[in-house]
């Protein structure tokens, strides 16, 4: 197993600032916009984006929720591991709102497909956009692309892209881990 660093803490910080600015550019006052972090790991990224937006926009910052997609996944009963859920916390109705999904790594697109189904339990959003920190190119199973993207990478199938966050893993870093290919 070998690993290399794709982004260090400083580079991540620059990207987060840029993504937040792009959101402000498109949604200006966020009057009708909500941000939804996808459980489990998209929530860390969403928290960071939210903190930047709050510092920038004060009380105009958008409402923020967490969405767990476990019960909407398409691989129930297909693997060895049982699918365990995380907390969903959406204290608002998304009916007619602009929804921004936030997730750390976009890979096959299946999680986002599940999230698109899951969000309908909370109303019919006006639009849904996707913000990701890392877009793994050429590995999509479904026609899903990010609207806001931190960095594109070309990683092959037996490599894993791992995003670590200071508050959870001790440091901000994005690594590509190469699993032993037998």
């Amino acid at each position: 197993m070998s690993k290399r660093t794709l982004l260090n803490g400083q580079e991540i910080q620059v990207i987060l600032q840029r993504l937040a600015c792009q959101l402000i550019e498109n949604h200006s006052d966020f009057k009708n916009t909500v941000i939804i972090g996808l459980q489990p790991r998209g929530v860390f990224l969403a928290n960071r984006i939210q903190a930047i937006l709050e510092a920038e926009l004060k009380e105009n910052a958008p409402a923020f929720g967490k969405l767990d997609i476990t019960f909407y996944r398409d691989d129930f009963r297909r693997g060895d591991k049982i699918l365990q859920a995380n907390q969903t916390e959406i204290n608002f109705i998304v009916e007619n709102k602009h929804v921004i999904f936030v997730d750390d790594v976009l890979y096959t697109g299946r999680s986002i497909r599940s999230a698109l189904t899951a969000i309908q339990s909370f109303g019919r959003p006006k639009t849904v956009e996707l913000l990701t920190l890392i877009d793994r190119r050429f590995s999509r199973h479904l026609p899903i692309q990010p609207d806001y993207n931190g960095k594109q990478v070309d990683a092959i199938n037996h490599e894993r892209v791992v995003v670590k966050w200071k508050e959870n893993d001790g440091e901000d870093v994005v690594e590509i881990i190469r699993l032993n290919d037998e």
Partner: peptide, 8 residues
């Protein structure tokens, strides 16, 4: 939730 159903 407003819609109380999951597709699992």
């Amino acid at each position: 939730r407003p819609i109380k159903k999951v597709p699992s």
